[in-house]
Computed example of a mutant assay.
Amino acid sequence: MQTKPPRLAAVVLVSSTACPRTDPPGASPRSTAPPAAPNLVAVPPDAGTAEDIAAVNARIQGVLGEPAKYAQTFASFQRAVAARDAKAVAALVAYPFTANIGGRRVKLPDGAAFVRHYDAIVTPAIAKVITRQRYADLFVNEQGVMFGQGEAWLHGIRKDAANFDVRVIAIQSAN
């Protein structure tokens, strides 16, 4: 019987900025782990090879900007869907949000409305696509970052002229 290798989380550098140690010269380090840095992004296990992840980050940077924001939202979205945490998913959505509920397109004004309709929006089939999506296999274009065959999309939403948040802009059946 074959055993599977242990699943390890990957940490991907999305910036070439160095992160120097903060221990004073001559002091023994507090930890053997590298210091935490804002330019390191944890991606889920089985996210893909470092080269494939770097290629996705390069596409995001070239088309959408700041891959760290996309990687963070990608991971948060996957975790929330896997946990069936309707409030956490709702917090990642851009509003107003249009959803297909009972065969009708319904505009949801806020997170409370999204939570009420969560099971109709994030069906088991859509949840499966979202939770199984590998970061390295994301499709990226000017419309955003696509899960599966279009079951979910992430895109940057402008907060002001210089800043944006990455939000879920669509969750839909690909059929």
Score class of each variant (00 low, 15 high):
F147E: 03
A90M: 11
T3P: 01
E66A: 08
T3G: 04
T131E: 12
R84Q: 15
K159M: 07
D165M: 08
F114P: 01
L8T: 09
P34H: 08
Q78C: 05
A58H: 13
P5I: 00
T3A: 08
V145M: 13
Q2K: 11
Q78K: 15
A27D: 14
S15L: 03
K4T: 09
P24N: 08
A136P: 04
K128C: 08
R116S: 10
V56Y: 03
I169F: 05
S173T: 12
A120K: 13
A80W: 05
A88D: 05
A125T: 11
N100C: 09
A90K: 06
D119S: 11
A152K: 04
T131M: 08
L40H: 12
F164N: 02
V12L: 14
R79P: 01
E66W: 02
V166F: 07
A86C: 09
A174K: 12
C19Q: 12
I157Y: 05
G111F: 07
R7K: 13
F74T: 03
T123V: 05
F74I: 10
R134C: 06
G150V: 06
P45N: 04
I171T: 04
G48F: 05
W153K: 13
P35Q: 08
G156L: 04
A75E: 13
A120F: 07
V140I: 15
A162K: 11
P20F: 07
V12T: 08
V140A: 02
S15Q: 04
R79I: 13
Y135R: 10
A161I: 00
I169S: 13
V12E: 02
P5W: 00
R104D: 08
N141Y: 07
E66F: 05
M146Q: 14
Q172D: 15
N57Q: 09
V106P: 00
R21E: 15
P38Q: 00
N163E: 00
P5F: 00
A47R: 03
V14F: 00
A82Q: 15
P67N: 03
E142F: 06
Q2R: 12
A9C: 10
Y135V: 11
A80Q: 06
T123Q: 06
T73E: 02
R79T: 15
A42P: 06
P29W: 11
F164W: 05
D119E: 14
P6A: 12
L40M: 10
R132Y: 05
A75D: 13
A47K: 03
R158D: 14
L92H: 05
A99Y: 03
T73F: 05
P124H: 11
R104L: 06
Q72S: 13
S173W: 00
R158M: 13
F114A: 02
V11G: 03
A127Y: 07
N57E: 06
A91Q: 10
A50S: 12
V168H: 03
A55Q: 12
A112W: 00
A170L: 13
V63R: 09
R21A: 15
F164I: 02
V41E: 02
I53L: 14
V122G: 02
V168I: 15
A94I: 04
